[in-house]
Design a protein around this nucleic acid. Structure first.
Lengths: 226, 226
DNA sequence: GCTACTTTCGGAACGTGTTCGAAAAGTCAA
DNA sequence: TTGACTTTTCGAACACGTTCCGAAAGTAGC
């Protein structure tokens, strides 16, 4: 593809590779072998180009992953946002959480470079919905930003910890249990003992999110909501 | 050092290198040039041994960082824990947060492998204090574990996001601001505009933690606390 | 046709964490 | 003293992300 003799006015050597082509090949590799196996060299070989040629179409690997994430988020169907501001915050945060859970490496990239400045506008509705929900509930703009940031910290932490814990789930102890705990030093932990693993395997994000949002919104309105 | 002819009963070639020696050298390198500059090869060169010799004394680099973190936590003075269970949870979580903030790469290692199973017992008092505080407040053991996990998610998320955002603070936009936001699509974000950067630079962990802990403990006791 | 200029392509090389396998240096039993 | 065994040491090598720099392939002006 892309074999036109010259798009007129364009100078320089005509490109054989397009960014769209790279993204398609990357998605194919991820679907086939998982995103852990996606390397720059493998991707270039899959396309049939030199390794360093990729760097004329993407800044680096993080940039590539970010482009893939943005495309993934665009595919997500936007949920119907409830009328209640609190429920709107919950719905948007849950959508954010689900999107990141599906592509856990994205959370690494995002936490590594700051969230809002990197995503396309097609993903901004989640941030907007949270900030707007907080505002409609009676928060000042400053408080609304705080609400979003707190939710973001909690969400990215949950996604990262659980994604990385799941990797070790096949081998050895599932989440985090030690059987060498001294009951005289850490009595409560020792009493929980082996049950920790089972307890830690449960998904507590929905409940934790509700609790956190309730607290954040309540704190923002010291006297009656609007 | 370590030049005794044979510690009796020990077979095999006598070691020239000790794990303690490696840890001391690693701390010296980190203090000199920062932990970003700590590489396996530099560390080996600093000690004066072959690169691969290190791998007979540590499992891998993450293991090395974990050993350093454990040593760092041991050095921390344990704060006087308040009598009020809620304040005890806050104090322990804050100590956890401060320890991770001082060594941000540690949060990566910990989130990558699960928390409790990796730290020495000298760091377990933080987990114990949180779980015990929740229990003393009236939580069941299951609820207490949930309280800890929620706090852990929030804390590790905050540390990771802020540590990685700080890296980009010198170049370009500090945290996350886009000036290409369409007010008709994201009115609240557009209204906040450039103020986002200043708002996002503030430290909201202490307040967010209090809010979260209040909500978590309140939810755990539907009818009056003990 | 020739010379600039511009853009794309890609091989070579660097530094990284890590693995493999062989050599070195000790103990122990015969 | 010899041979088996065990542990430590480390050079060679691998795959990774990334940078450098020269070659390739087009247009634009003369």
């Amino acid at each position: 593809m892309s074999r036109s003799p010259a798009p007129h006015g364009r100078t320089g050597r005509p490109p054989l590779t397009s960014r769209a082509q790279i993204l398609v090949a990357a998605r194919r590799l991820i679907d086939q072998d998982g995103w852990e196996k996606l390397t720059i060299r493998r991707l270039a070989a899959e396309i049939g180009i030199g390794t360093t040629t990729l760097y004329h179409h993407i800044r680096n690997k993080d940039d590539l992953l970010l482009l893939l994430l943005n495309h993934h988020i665009e595919q997500i169907e936007r949920p119907q946002l409830p009328g209640d501001p609190r429920e709107r915050v919950i719905t948007a945060a849950t959508a954010l959480h689900d999107a990141l859970t599906a592509w856990p490496w994205a959370a690494e990239v995002l936490s590594a470079d700051g969230f809002v400045g990197l995503l396309d506008e097609s993903a901004m509705w989640m941030v907007e919905a949270i900030v707007a929900g907080a505002g409609d509930h009676g928060c000042t703009p400053e408080q609304s930003v705080d609400v979003f940031r707190n939710i973001w910290y909690y969400t990215v932490g949950e996604v990262l910890v659980r994604a990385h814990s799941a990797r070790r789930l096949g081998e050895g102890r599932p989440f985090a249990y030690r059987d060498d705990l001294d009951p005289s030093h850490v009595p409560h932990l020792a009493a929980i003992g082996v049950r920790w693993a089972a307890l830690a395997a449960r998904d507590i994000y929905p409940e934790g999110l509700r609790t956190f949002v309730d607290g954040l919104l309540a704190q923002a309105t010291p006297r009656g909501a609007g």
